[in-house]
């Protein structure tokens, strides 16, 4: 049994369908990367998994239990956390309060997770009392990932974690994500940056709401066609 199983997922906005029967699964302990052009439906997919997007049909199963249709609070409690596209830090709250709020559903482990977050992102510890909105883009991204980690997730979703960052900073983020994964957290990344490929155990490519590739990262790297079409 896979940690995450998406089966025939259907959802959209208003009357407009975006996903019409999406299916894939992610194995525990791996790093999976979801690629695709703008508008392919990547954000819609991870938001649906996190409970932020209503599910019209199909099912999402986490650790053998159905989470589709559950409120976001319950899904976070079960062990799924998301770093949203566009970072979405609380701009007028301090770094410390942003992180505290990340542990909203997991108060008991907050202290331990905070130390863990500082070990991944020492920069955040230096800026604890700064307003999150005044952080640089890279720091805000670290905070978004750190805040998601505060709930002690078993599955971490990161939507466009490298968008707008310098190539060097993007690489740093990928390296930290790889460490997070090594420490036992399963990771599903949404990315358009091909630099993430070396870290991907599993690669998925989406086009217009459907999967056009689902294989190993290595396979995707070797197939020149896919590379050209979907990754530019």
């Amino acid at each position: 049994m896979s940690l995450l199983e998406v089966e025939g997922l259907r959802t959209g906005y208003g009357l407009l369908p975006v996903l019409q029967g999406l299916s894939f699964s992610v194995e525990e302990g791996t790093t999976a990367v979801l690629f695709g052009l703008n508008g392919a439906g990547k954000t819609t997919t991870v938001n649906a998994i996190a409970g932020l997007q209503p599910v019209w049909g199909g099912s999402i199963t986490f650790d053998g239990q159905k989470i589709s249709g559950q409120p976001a609070t319950k899904i976070v409690e079960r062990g799924v956390a998301i770093s949203l596209e566009g970072r979405h830090v609380f701009p007028k709250l301090s770094v410390r309060k942003n992180l505290d709020l990340g542990a909203w559903t997991a108060r008991k482990t907050a202290k331990q997770q905070l130390d863990l977050v500082f070990s991944y992102f020492p920069r955040l510890e230096e800026r604890l009392d700064q307003m999150a909105g005044t952080l640089s883009g890279g720091e805000q991204q670290m905070l978004a990932i750190g805040r998601a980690l505060m709930s002690k997730p078993r599955l971490l979703l990161i939507d466009e974690g490298s968008l707008g960052l310098s190539p060097k900073l993007a690489q740093t983020v990928f390296e930290v994500v790889s460490r997070i994964n090594d420490d036992g957290t399963t990771v599903l990344l949404v990315e358009q940056n091909i630099g993430v490929l070396p870290y991907a155990d599993q690669a998925l490519v989406m086009e217009k709401g459907t999967l056009t590739f689902n294989g190993s990262g290595k396979e995707l790297g070797e197939s020149g066609d896919l590379r050209k079409t979907y990754l530019g």
């Binding site: 976001a72 409690e77 830090v89 559903t105 709930s151």
Partner: peptide, 23 residues
Amino acid sequence: SRMGTAILAVSQDATAARAVGIS
């Protein structure tokens, strides 16, 4: 207070507040 901070969080970014599990 925690609840007070949560209210501020919702007013600043409701989507992010839901994402961390705040109702």
